[in-house]
Design a binder for these strands. Structure first.
Ligand SMILES: [Mn+2]
Ligand SMILES: [Mn+2]
Ligand SMILES: [Mn+2]
Ligand SMILES: [Mn+2]
Lengths: 171, 171
DNA sequence: CCCGATTTATAGCAATGGCTATAAACAGTC
DNA sequence: GACTGTTTATAGCCATTGCTATAAATCGGG
């Protein structure tokens, strides 16, 4: 431990020389602490697609009666082979069941994930609307945001939306 | 156009048979419309890393004096070669400048992106706090959410945070 | 029962974002 | 100026997510 290395990278800012005054620079943050956020975001990115797929498949089955690759592709804005490959992966993961040329179906596990995802998506979208964002923007932004919202934040959003609804409602 | 195809996939739900009553099922949504959200999310995912890197590099330069690969890696929670490769890409994109064994620096373009990203990140994090989320959760969730927030939503967040601050403030 | 349109499947390609293992360059210390 | 530990660079490797082009399967009508 001769040069800078771990000392600076990890230990140094743990106990900063000057303690934070009121409203001072926000205390540099330990590297490990900072990494937590990035790790969480990377994890969310990894499962994002699965969530969007099962949610969309569930929607299609309910509204159209079946979920075909072409329809999934059209709604995701990707090419059909992209969907085919992804469905294979989802089948491997036990989230969907493919009946060739007869559409895709959700397994029990898929149904659970779909419902959880749909719920969260709805909360986020409704929240954005309650916050005063236009319906179009709420729809578009929520498609990405939903995957990065923890349960705690989701709860806060729910509370706010409910409050806002009560306030603007007749009562 | 004999079978189902485009008819169902694209045209069908454009003008649904039953017009939406008050608070009825939320009108199935045209496939193209739905695809917009997914496209926006995919786009955000593509530039997410660049944003996080330049923001972090700027932070390091300001607080530590220089941005070394090891320090970036520690804060992102990834391995150093991962950082090395990414920095090469960022250099190709004209966002950073590498002086071998002397740290990374931001180009003018990098500086601009970094500042914009940092700003947005701050707004989102402060907003989550104002919403009543714990500081830790706000820090972690904002790391992912920030990249999916449009200007319109960002504005709404700013307004809310300001309002909340005024409300709880002495006056 | 065969045709034509639609839908799926497959092959092959590329970019991205991770990793480990290892070599090379550098900076301080003696 | 050589040792030694730190930092960068490089060389593979792999998984993921997208694409195009093309072949195969299916289905509804005639
Ligand atoms: Mn969703
Ligand atoms: Mn989504
Ligand atoms: Mn950020
Ligand atoms: Mn981020």
């Amino acid at each position: 431990m001769t040069q800078r290395s771990t000392t600076r990278s990890t230990t140094r800012s743990a106990t900063p020389g000057r303690r934070a005054g009121p409203e001072a620079a926000p205390t540099p943050l330990r590297p490990e602490t900072r990494a937590e956020g990035f790790r969480q975001a990377r994890h969310a990115r990894r499962i994002e697609l699965s969530e969007d797929y099962v949610e969309l498949i569930g929607d299609l089955i309910r509204t159209v009666g079946e979920a075909r690759q072409v329809d999934i592709a059209a709604r995701l804005g990707v090419a059909q082979p992209t969907v085919a490959k992804m469905l294979k992966r989802l089948a491997d993961e036990g989230l969907v069941l493919q009946r060739p040329y007869r559409g895709v179906f959700l397994t029990a596990a898929g149904e659970v994930l779909a419902e959880r995802s749909r719920q969260r998506h709805r909360v986020v979208e409704a929240f954005l609307c309650a916050l005063g964002v236009s319906a179009e923007t709420a729809r578009r932004d929520s498609e990405g945001i939903e995957h990065h919202v923890s349960d705690e934040t989701l709860d806060a959003m729910r509370r706010f939306t409910a409050r806002a609804g009560k306030a603007s409602d007749g009562r």
